[in-house]
């Protein structure tokens, strides 16, 4: 029998600074990836992706900064964990996507799905203002930025009619504390 252990290729990351950064930020060792594609087979969102999830990991392993950070995949991932629950190597794949998304923003990379980023920013904006999300405001501001008033108008009206979109936000009283948490985060970033 051959001793295969000596033939294992270990991607240590020492020659791949990008990979190391992602590893540190994501806090999950994606170098364990077997590329079995369990993640890709189960992911309900591959239709909105340019690279399958394991291929994103491959790009990172090969130090391919631009294709990884400018991919649509990192924005299509909603962190439903369908992939990570079936990953035989227990890799937190959505955690890798979180890390890549944040690195793409910080390093000024082209954002493949700017609408998704705008949406996330509007959600966080309402949390900063009220301490809780305010769906109507998120939708209106998102639509203003996108300059798109008609898509989903009927959905919005139906939700208003059913009183599912509150006109005024639900608020936290100690909003000072919430602002403090936001300040801390922007200072550390």
């Amino acid at each position: 029998m051959h001793d295969t252990s000596s033939k294992t290729i270990v991607l240590s990351g020492s020659h791949n600074k990008f990979g190391e950064q992602v590893l540190k930020r994501a806090g999950t060792n994606f170098n364990r990836c077997l590329h079995c594609q369990s993640c890709a087979s189960g992911c309900p969102f591959t239709g909105a992706m340019d690279y399958l999830p394991n291929r994103i990991i491959r790009l990172v392993q090969f130090g391919q900064i631009q294709p990884a950070l400018e991919s649509a995949t990192i924005w299509a991932c909603v962190a439903c964990n369908t992939c990570s629950i079936q990953c035989p190597m227990a890799i937190d794949i959505p955690g890798v996507m979180d890390a890549l998304r944040q690195m793409a923003i910080e390093n000024g990379h082209q954002i493949a799905e700017p609408d998704v980023l705008n949406f996330h920013r509007e959600v966080l904006n309402t949390i900063e203002r009220y301490g809780r999300t305010h769906k109507l405001e998120i939708m209106l501001r998102y639509k203003i930025k996108k300059r798109d008033w008609f898509t989903d108008l009927n959905v919005g009206l139906k939700m208003l009619a059913k009183r599912k979109l509150d006109l005024t936000p639900s608020r936290v009283s100690d909003i000072g504390r919430i602002r403090q948490l936001f300040k801390k985060s922007s200072k550390d970033a």
Partner: peptide
């Protein structure tokens, strides 16, 4: 979904 997506802190 938004905080962990773009701001882990």
């Amino acid at each position: 979904s938004s905080a962990h997506s773009i701001d882990s802190e």
